[in-house]
């Protein structure tokens, strides 16, 4: 276990921001932390790394108790904070070398690492510029780079890609995958479901300061008792189909909307062939789409809220 958090509690006056949260992260994992606004994600990780004083709970990182080995642990910790934390009056390069030096890097190693972090975030051509003049997305990228200069064993990223354009984002996502191949373990907080689905090996969902579900994305989806949806696009509208289809095993509902037929069945009813046969008798199938429950629906079912509401 690389990180073990047990029974973490943090209360702000009348808000119980973190309510008895326990987390365990294995080496090499990318743990996705999901939850609506105010769920307590940021507070959880802040308490984990000593930015916020937890009311109670035990934190063990790299097999060491955080309280007793704080500086030692911090040496191998990289953090991308949710709020951008860079010096606007130092150039991108200077920012990175300053933070690199805080971790004891120097000389040519420092130089290499700084260049590498700039490359990583696509800022190499902007290294001599002041972040004052950066766009928000560029500041975000520098914010990420600052956490990577010292090659930390554990990287915590709190919504690192907010406000970054899709291309740069996918570049960063690819790079994050590379990081894990190089041996980093990552805690990744995001509101972007696709990012979490794409890179995370395990997911923890939080709400109201509590962990309400955890597991791999397959496990999470399997927990859902939600329905399967089959959407068939037909060459022409055909309303006569519906009665027959509703007789198929497991079908709960079916309706036609324009050229589109939607069939809602119970999970694992294995009636796809039946549907196709029925439709083929009287129409031509233009396309067919089977919708599995997505993480979004998992989330929605668990929290009753959409991720970005």
């Amino acid at each position: 276990m690389l990180v073990e958090v047990r029974n973490l509690v943090k209360r702000y006056k009348d808000v119980l921001a973190v309510d008895n949260v326990s987390l365990a992260i294995e080496e090499g994992e990318i743990l996705g932390l999901l939850g609506p606004n105010g769920a307590g994600k940021t507070t959880t990780i802040n308490a984990m790394i000593g930015l916020t004083k937890a009311d109670s709970g035990e934190i063990v990182i790299f097999g060491k108790n955080f309280k007793d080995h704080e500086l030692e642990i911090k040496r191998d910790l990289g953090v991308v904070p949710q709020d951008i934390a860079i010096f606007e009056d130092l150039t991108a390069y200077e920012n990175l070398s300053y933070f690199g030096k805080l971790y004891g890097l120097k000389g040519s190693l420092l130089k290499d690492r700084v260049e590498e972090a700039l490359e990583f975030t696509g800022l190499l051509d902007k290294k001599k510029q002041y972040p004052k003049k950066f766009s928000n997305g560029m500041k975000r990228r520098l914010n990420i780079a600052c956490a990577l200069v010292h090659h930390p064993k554990l990287i915590i990223m709190d919504e690192p890609t907010v406000g970054i354009d899709p291309q740069s984002r996918s570049h960063i996502i690819q790079s994050i995958k590379k990081l894990t191949k190089m041996g980093s373990t990552i805690i990744y907080i995001s509101h972007y479901m696709e990012e979490i689905e794409g890179i995370c090996t395990r997911i923890v969902i939080m709400d109201h300061g509590r962990v309400i579900a955890k597991g791999t994305k397959e496990e999470l989806k399997a927990q859902m008792t939600s329905d399967e949806r089959v959407v068939v696009e037909l060459s022409t509208a055909n309303y006569t189909l519906i009665d027959n289809i509703k007789k198929l095993a497991g079908v709960k509902d079916a309706y036609v909307n324009g050229n589109e037929l939607t069939v809602i069945s119970q999970k694992n009813s294995k009636n796809l062939k039946g549907i196709i046969d029925q439709v083929s008798e009287s129409s031509v199938i233009m396309s067919l789409n089977v919708e599995q429950p997505s993480l979004e629906t998992v989330f929605l079912t668990l929290t009753g809220r959409s991720l970005r509401d």
């Binding site: 790394i49 000593g50 930015l51 500086l71 030692e72 911090k74 040496r75 910790l77 953090v79 904070p81 709020d83 951008i84 934390a85 860079i86 010096f87 606007e88 933070f99 805080l102 971790y103 004891g104 600052c146």
Partner: peptide, 14 residues
């Protein structure tokens, strides 16, 4: 105010 204090808070300097 600029949140940069955080960088020092998470770094291994005393």
């Amino acid at each position: 105010k600029k949140n940069t204090l955080l960088r020092f808070n998470i770094s291994p300097i005393n």
